[in-house]
Each structure stands twice: as C-alpha cells, then as structure tokens.
Design a protein around this nucleic acid. Structure first.
Lengths: 193, 193, 193, 193
DNA sequence: TCGTAACCGAGACGGTACGTCACGTCTTCTG
DNA sequence: CAGAAGACGTGACGTACCGTCTCGGTTACGA
C-alpha cells in the first residue's frame, strides 16, 4: 500500500516557506530555471518534503500561484456587459503582463507533456474563472444583452481565448487599451451591419 | 564569435535523415520524450552534426514539421467567407488532432522558455498561415462580406485563436462538426439581433 | 566555493565497488582505455557518485591501487644492506612487471599534465615507500655500512630511480636477476678500486 | 593495398610550418593542450596533411623537438670523465627545466599508452644520446677512469636515470649546482671508504 | 512522562540527457 | 590535381536535475 502521508501532520511553516520560495524563484529567475532543489534550498527544506506533498515542481508553483492570486472573485457586474468584459480583459492582460504571466505560461508549457498537471491547471485555475464568467454571462443573457442561443461556455472561450492565445504565441504585444474595441467586434460580429 | 559553419557544405543525406528521424520519433514517443541523442542515433548521425546546424531539439523538430507540412497553400476561396472559414477551421482541428498537433503543442511549450524558438515558431510556422488568411479576409472585406473597420489581422486572431487556445489548455475536446456554428457566432456577434 | 560533500556520508558499498571496478578494468583493458563512464557502469553506480568523491579517473585508480597494494610495510632488514636493497629491487621489478606496473605508468603519464595528481601520486604512493627506505638507510649509515655524508634521500633516488626510469622509457626489459650486480655498482662506485 | 604516399612529394613549406607551429603551440599552451586541429590551423594547413605524414600529434611534436634540438652532438670530452659527466648533467637539467622539458614529459606520458610512439621516442631521441655517452664512457674505461666490468650502457642509466626520474615524478626540484657531488656519489659509491 | 512513530533537514544515491571537445576519416571546392 | 577547409561519425567528457533513498534529530500524540 501507498504510505499515504497524513495531511494534518503537514508542517505549516514548511508549507508556507515552500510556496513562497517557489513563487519568488519563479519570478526572479523565470519559470523554466526553477528546480525542485532550488526551491527546497531557498525554503530551508528537504527535497523529500516537497515530493511528499507535490508530484512535481509545476504542481508546487501552480499551488503557489493560486495561493498568491487568492480565491478568484472579481467578475465585475455594472449591468453593462460590454464594459464589464472590457474591464475584465484589461485586468487579465495586466495581470498576465507581469511576472505572473510568465509563470502561467510556464505552467501551460509543462502541462503539454503532463496530463495530470493539465487537469490541475484547468480545475484549480482556469475553471473557477471560466465558471464565474459563465454566471455573469448567463445574467447578461437573461437581461437580453446577449444571444440566448449561444452557450455561455463558448462565449467565454471566444471572448478570452484570443487573449491567452496571443500571450502564449507572442504574435503581437498585448495592449490593454483597445479591449473595448475588441469586445465590440465580438459582440456585434465581423459582418457589416 | 561563433565559427558559423557554411550551410553550403551541409550534407544532404544527413540533413534529410535528421528531419525524418526527428519527426518519426516525435510522432512515436511523444514530443517530450524525444532527445537529441535519440534523433542522432535514429538518423545514424553524430550528435555534433545536429548541434552544428540547430540550436536545440525544438529547432530540429520545428524544421521537420515545416518540411513535412510543406509549403502552406490551402486557404479555401469559394466566395463564401463563412463557409471557407468553417472548412479551414475543420482542417486545423483535424490536422492538430493527429500526432502533428501533439508536436505543435510541444513546440509551443518549449517556446515559452526560449525566445529564439518562439520567434522561429512565429515566423516560420504561424505567420505564413496568418498572412494567407489576412489576404483571404481582405478579399472578403472588399467584397463587402466583412466589416472594413476591423483589421484583418485581428480577425484572424479572433477566428482561430480560440481553437489554438483550446488545443493548448484542453478545456474541452475539439469537435470539427460545429465549426459552422462557431463561425456564425463570430461573424454575427454575440448580441441578439 | 565547492560544496565539499561530507565524507562521513559516503556509501561504503559504492566506494568499494568503484575501487574494485576501476582496478579490474584497468588491469583488463589497460589504463588508457578506462573511462569514468565504464567504471561507473561496472560498479553499478552513477557517474556523479564518482565525480563527487574524486576529481578524475586517475585519482580513482590511484586510490584503488593504494587500496590494493595495501599499507606499505615491507622494507627488508636482515642487517645486510646490499642484500636488502637487491631483494627490494627485485620486488619492485616483479611488482611493476605485472598489470600493476602498467597502471602505475598510466598514473605517471597523467600526472605529467595534472599537477594535483602528481602531488597525490607523490604523497600517497611514492613518498611512504621512499620514507621507509630512508629509515632503513639511516640505520645502515649508523651501522657504518653506508657513507654518512650522502643524504639518504638522495641514496634512495640513486638506487631506485634508474629502475623506475627504465620502466617508463622501456629502454631495456627489466630483469630481476641482476639486481645484486647493480647494487654493487652503486655501493662500490663506478671507478676502479 | 595501403596508399603509401611518396615522401618525395611532401610539401616542404607545409612540413616546416607544421613542425614550427607544433613546437610553438606546445611551448605556449603546454603539451597536453595542443590539438592536431590547432597545429593545422596555426600552420595554415589541412588536418589531413598532418595525418598523411604522422600518426598522431605526439609523433609530430617528437619530430619537431628533434628538429629543434638538432642533431645531437654535445658530449663533452676534456679527459676528466667526472667533470664531463657533471657538466652534461647540468646541461640536461637546464635543458629540461625549460619548456622543452615539459614537452619531453608530455611525450613520455603519451608513450605510456602508445608502443609505437615509445619506440620512436627511444630510437629517435633517447638512444642517440645514450649511444654518444656510451662511447664517451668506453673511452674513459680505456683510460682507466672507470671500471671495466660494468657495461657502459648500464653506467649511462645509473648516471642519468635518476635525473629523468626526478623530472617525471617531481619528487624534488632539480638543481644544476650539485651535479658534481652526485657524480661523486656514483663514481665513488655509497659505501664508506 | 515517556516511548514511539511520523515528519523533518540534509544530502548521497542510480540515472538520463545535456552540450562540448577532439579524434581520425571523408568530401568538396579552389588555386 | 594537390591540398586547405571543414563536415562527418564517434565516443568520452564533466554538469545539471531528476525522483528515490538513507540518515539522525525533533516533534507530538497516546499509553
């Protein structure tokens, strides 16, 4: 049988130190240069202590990222769905433009070859945000601001997918200023009126 | 300074063998499991011969992928822009659903920590395809099928970005069948008429 | 600074296996053909484990040689210095005539381009033997068997230097039988009486 | 059949340039750091041109060394054999104390794992010198300065072997000043009179 | 209150792949 | 058409991290 360590016995001080060290190293040296050994050393912790609780450096950093960005809350709701989306898109662009964006990109990168990480990344990071937006969009649909025949899950993808895509591929720099225009394109469509 | 070997002296047989071996290994074992040593061995080539001409395994595989998918050509042009986009989207989804998609994802992953690779991936792989689509969309604009006030570069991103995004994040499986619907959403917008 | 691993934590089983493998490979394939990788493989050990404790293959083999020939003891002392030297010279010739001689020659060879190894070879291998002989010769001087005005360190060199020299240069095959004669030349001098 | 290049066709200019470059590089960077590629580059010559005429870098450097130190001549002959030996020993010590000594040591090192080189080193470099000394000692024997019952070949070994030995092992620094004393030890023997 | 069992730090271990170096051979182009 | 230039297959180098595995030392719970 697996030893199955008891999470209650987890040393709080170590846990914190690991998450803090992981995030600081990732921000300082770049995601790819972080190693489990370096995290352990920086946290003043044995390597085994990390492997006891996480399967990989990516898992540590994902939890650290989640821990830092905190429980996601902020879907704006002013009643004007277009404005709310634009503001939120600006927020995403700004957040991902910092070191956190680089870390997120590193996690996505590792997830390409690690299905378990991909699942965690989805469940623990992306989905809560998507879910909150689906709810906001549902409300907008109910208010008659958006088409009722488009699944809101699809809407979220169409609205935010291009931003994440550009961040990963780096086609062009992300500019928070023209989000309003882009939202207009999506809401009103690309056909002439 | 680097000695910068003369490309004219490159051995054609080795060059081919390397590209073929790289692609076959990547398809068989998965991008992440490929190593430069394995490529060299499979190609019957010295490791140094690879490092002489490419900076990394990713660069080899990128060239191999480009070499295999050949000179990009296929933007459909039936006169119906919506149908053309839908067909193309299906094509992308089908192409990336195979082993080639996994390879492409691996390249994007490596590019997150390797700016030079990111640049190559953009210039050598993505941009030619984007460019071809911009031309097709320009034509559609001229034909009055699309809004003239939206940069076609942006259109390409809005149309295909979500597909690539979903491929990388794996939010939901990609389904080639509903591309028509999705194109409709984008062309007509998410607002009620 | 180097991390300087703690020798107390050295794994005894690995240590032994490395020394044994090193000596066996050197004896079987010849000193020059031994590689660190081969030692590691033969010892069932990671290459890094060798590099953790020794700076080079030569250092491993030197320790292995020292370990095998054991703590040097045997300076004969029958009271007849001429006979004792002759016997010892025979011993040296016989010992170095075997595979061990080839190994020793390899170490001397490497030491020509590696001052640290040269120092180790001197301190750990040659000097203990020289020292023991100096003591024996001191006793002979006290007994009036040898000149008191010649430093015994120099004597050791004059007595054994030519043997080692011939081994290295291979001028003529070493013959254990005529050691007595050669000792006579050295003790009584090359001038006619 | 072996191609067996005709030595007459050997390009004189290249030959010279190779020998000169080899010796200069060896003197400047140390024997061990010299590579065939570096010699070729420094001589403005293709690598193949070196391999056509010599089997290894050691062979090149041996010929270069021989070429530089020129045809050996200098055995002093004043009629006083003790003085002549002392002067010659000083000469050896001085010569080998310079960069040439380092080169010679490198050659001896390589010869330990290369029987063909060992043979060349002996035949082309050591033996001529030994031979000349044997002749000088034969004369001294005839003059009654040295014992007639000791082979002069052995004498040469006893006289010079310890010097070469010390140079290779580096037991103590070589001092040209006390050669007279050392010759005295050897000629008069280590026993009290 | 005191075992005793788990967690902890430290870091050595067997591995895998890295990117570099030099070898000795082979090929191409040029003077 | 000889030879410089240098690409080639080969193989070992020494390094970096991986994820696992001892080691004592230190909690912290239950008898």
């Amino acid at each position: 049988m697996a030893p199955a360590p008891n999470p209650d016995l987890r040393n709080q001080r170590s846990h914190r130190a690991i998450l803090d060290a992981a995030l600081e190293l990732a921000a300082r040296d770049g995601y790819a240069k972080v190693t489990v050994e370096a995290i352990a050393a920086a946290a003043g912790v044995g390597k085994q202590t990390i492997y006891r609780w996480w399967p990989s450096k990516a898992a540590v950093i994902l939890e650290a990222l989640n821990d830092r960005t905190g429980p996601f809350s902020g879907v704006p709701d002013t009643g004007d769905i277009a404005a709310d989306i634009a503001v939120a898109a600006q927020g995403v662009i700004e957040a991902l433009g910092t070191g956190l964006g680089t870390i997120w990109r590193g996690l996505v990168a590792d997830a390409q070859g690690d299905p378990r990480l991909a699942e965690s990344l989805l469940n623990d990071f992306m989905e809560p945000r998507n879910k909150a937006w689906q709810d906001r969009l549902d409300k907008a649909v109910a208010a008659g601001e958006l088409r009722a025949d488009v699944p809101t899950r699809t809407m979220v993808e169409l609205l935010f997918g291009p931003i994440y895509y550009r961040l990963l591929l780096g086609t062009d720099p992300l500019d928070p200023d023209n989000t309003t225009t882009r939202v207009d394109y999506l809401l009103n469509g690309l056909r002439p009126h």
